[in-house]
Simulated assay, not measured.
Amino acid sequence: MKKLLMGALVLGTVISTSAVKAQQLNTLSAKEKKNGWQLLFDGKSTTGWHTYLKETASPAWKISDNALVLDQEAKKNGAPGGDLVTDGEYENYELSVDWKISEGGNSGIIFSVHEDPAFEQSYLTGPEMQVLDDARHSDGKINKHNSGDLYDLKKSSKNAVKPVGQWNTAKIMKKDGHLTLWLNGVKTVETTIGTPEWDALVANSKFKGWKGFGKYPKGRIALQDHGNVVSYRNIKIRVL
């Protein structure tokens, strides 16, 4: 009986701890609210988001375990794919988002996205912070294509990604064109859009000659559908 009671107490503690952690997801602390942070994902719905060039969010983006999850099975059953983008546009801000990629998966956080039928995809205008299973996806072998990189533009100063299946925290700060990326608390990339350095980065990338790439200071934030299961949560922004 004593062992049963102890077991019940331990189990109750685990359940209680899990419940507390779940309650803390997709919320803002009093300090964050005071400092101007806003939630972009409430943990329950796709409110505030829509599929790029569509009015609403595709059902392929579902809510599971307090996260936005791209469900590839739903796409096989007819749900349209596509990048998920914010309803709002942002220019100077600090963005924080947790992500978890599936085995062999690929995705990205794309920003300064100009939504216009002239550009069929979000990546045609928006630079990207790479989200990847570096060890198993073929992009992991390509320079400037790893997690935390400014995709195809600038390589991370340090490899800071966690093993596939674990949650990572990315941060993007953009202020008057000055761009800084962090992954799991490690600064990975720093550059300034519109400078000679930036022009050189673009000229030496796949984006060379792309009409609208990196040309829009203000734009939407996108979560990329690259054909793999990916999860995002704790998405919050502070306008600077």
Rank of each mutant, 00 (worst) to 15 (best):
81 G>F: 12
145 H>D: 03
41 F>P: 01
96 S>G: 01
155 K>I: 12
34 K>H: 09
115 E>C: 10
218 K>V: 14
109 I>G: 00
3 K>N: 15
84 L>M: 06
69 V>K: 00
156 S>A: 13
154 K>R: 11
197 E>M: 13
116 D>S: 14
146 N>L: 14
61 W>M: 06
106 N>Q: 12
145 H>S: 09
196 P>Y: 05
7 G>P: 07
162 K>R: 15
221 I>P: 01
24 Q>P: 04
33 K>L: 15
180 T>K: 05
74 A>N: 04
7 G>K: 11
113 V>D: 03
25 L>R: 07
165 G>V: 12
97 V>H: 03
70 L>I: 11
132 L>G: 05
209 G>E: 14
190 E>W: 01
116 D>Y: 00
212 G>A: 10
194 G>A: 08
114 H>F: 06
114 H>T: 01
25 L>T: 07
149 D>F: 03
30 A>Q: 15
187 K>I: 09
217 P>I: 08
157 S>Y: 00
31 K>Q: 15
36 G>W: 10
229 V>I: 00
12 G>E: 10
47 T>E: 10
110 I>P: 00
91 E>N: 08
70 L>K: 03
177 G>A: 03
36 G>E: 10
149 D>A: 03
104 G>Y: 09
76 K>D: 14
231 S>E: 08
46 T>F: 03
237 I>K: 00
25 L>F: 02
233 R>C: 09
45 S>I: 10
214 G>W: 05
30 A>V: 14
51 T>M: 07
215 K>C: 08
16 S>P: 03
17 T>V: 15
205 S>H: 08
221 I>E: 02
82 G>M: 13
173 M>H: 08
193 I>P: 02
111 F>W: 11
137 H>D: 06
